[in-house]
């Protein structure tokens, strides 16, 4: 490479880099390069830490915001709130199923009684027989409706599965971010804390973030 070409290339570079390239001292070159790389890592590390802290804070705040809006029991974070949603919808579904369990035998009994009346009196005009026939139609419609009601409750399970997926997504984002903070912290020259396989509890999350000063 000619001197002119080097000069042209060097023109677009920051002063520190130009000084580095011109340096003839190998050790000084290495040292300066190391310090530039470390500086970059520190920026990345800080950005990740802030991101992790923000996410963690948002997850916690969402829970307390909801609690302030009049949700009866105090909840510590969004995950608990979602678990509460699951629990409430499950209770509602079970109550509907309880109702079906209670009403099904009633419908069956009404239908059987109507048949017994009609066996005894199948007149087309007698009010008792007419009522028995109507009761039978009603009992059969009820039995069908109750079956539909059972099936409709399966939406609780489908909605619940989606809620569970959201909970595990929040957890995985949070622990990936924390793992990045841990690794980047180690790269940036701080001592890496013991690996946390799954950062689940609020305390663990708080401890890990504060170890890095966030």
């Amino acid at each position: 490479m000619t001197a002119t070409m080097t000069a042209v290339l060097n023109d677009g570079l920051p002063a520190e880099v130009r000084a580095l390239l011109d340096s003839t001292d190998g050790a000084a070159f290495e040292q300066a390069l190391d310090s530039m790389v470390r500086q970059r890592e520190q920026h990345l590390f800080r950005a990740l830490g802030v991101l992790a802290r923000d996410l963690h804070g948002a997850v916690c705040r969402l829970g307390s915001d909801l609690a302030n809006e009049g949700v009866p029991e105090s909840m510590t974070d969004a995950r608990n709130y979602l678990a509460e949603v699951l629990d409430m919808s499950s209770k509602a579904a079970h109550r509907s199923l309880d109702f079906v369990d209670r009403m099904r035998p009633e419908a069956e009994a009404l239908s059987a009684n109507a048949v017994a009346v009609l066996d005894f009196n199948s007149s087309e005009t007698d009010p008792a027989a007419v009522l028995a026939r109507q009761a039978q139609v009603f009992a059969n419609a009820c039995a069908e409706g109750l079956n539909d009601m059972v099936l409709v409750q399966s939406w609780q399970d489908l909605a619940g599965q989606r809620v569970k997926k959201v909970v595990s997504f929040i957890e995985s984002v949070e622990s990936s971010l924390l793992e990045l903070v841990r690794l980047t912290g180690a790269l940036a020259g701080r001592e890496a804390p013991v690996e946390v396989a799954k950062v689940a509890s609020q305390d663990e999350v708080d401890r890990l973030l504060s170890e890095f000063g966030f």
Partner: peptide, 10 residues
């Protein structure tokens, strides 16, 4: 899900 177990049983 206990709801689903109950529905399938039903």
């Amino acid at each position: 899900f206990s709801t689903m177990r109950r529905i399938v049983r039903n």
